[in-house]
Amino acid sequence: MAELVIEATGLRKEFRSRKGTRVAVHDLDLAVPAGGVHGFLGPNGSGKTTTIRMLLGLARATRGEMRLFGQQVPAHLPAVIDRVGAVVESPKFSPNFTGRRNLLLLARTIGVPDAQVDRAVETVGLTGRDRDRYKSYSLGMKQRLAIAATLLKDPQLLILDEPTNGLDPAGIREIRETIRDLGERGVTVLLSSHILAEVQQVCTSATIIGNGRLLASGRVDDLIGSAGASAYVVEVPDPAPAGEALAAAGLVATPAPDGLRVETDDPALVTRTLGEAGIWLTALTPQRRDLESVFLELTAADTLGHGEGAR
């Protein structure tokens, strides 16, 4: 079994207020193996950010155990924090300081030479703007600065919470490339994102949570593959007789924009059935499930099953 960089067992977070107790994270188990990019998915308020904040010592877990690089946190967080870079929710810096000054303060906190700040600024493409005040930055520039801050540590684990928020398409692509590159260089990346297509493109594994509960976890391919039967879209000159032939063969065929959608994982059965009926198909397109459909199915089922709100 691969070494686990992040490990959480029975993690629970309750928020108490005058209105009562709200459970944001329900006995969550989380395992992120070393290397690669791990997606951390869930609808708004599902407990992703709260989980990340607990891992980083910003929020106290009500119950449960967490480990980073095998070290129990938050007790031993100081021993591993230098190996962890993180952007939690929106970037948070002093608005009246320049971007560079914000980074310098963080770099000096961990004894990193000022030259590392220049390198980080260059890596995220902020050279030339780093001496401008942070409050004058666009949201995309703020995100870049936050990522630059994580690079000051030369981290082995990067935790990114919605890192492409506010970025334009080019910016999103750049950040995606950076994340993929980091993953390929051996940095473990925990990527929390709503943009599921993006997660599917860069992540090797993923965890899906809903209402603070674990819904699914594993390799992205396995999550997609294990989520149900495949389907094929059949294009034929005349869908009506084709539908009858398929139905006679015991296949479920429903009208689709380009022809017929046939629920089966056996394409040979489709072509044989239609061929025997003298119908020649013009196209047979496999309908692979994507992460988004898996995500929506899982979270919809969870929402129906549990009505509790969570952060």
């Binding site: 010592g57 100081p78 914000n102 963080l106």
Partner: peptide, 11 residues
Amino acid sequence: GSMSNQLLFET
């Protein structure tokens, strides 16, 4: 909110 950022570097 920069307090949380600081605590990511010195916990």
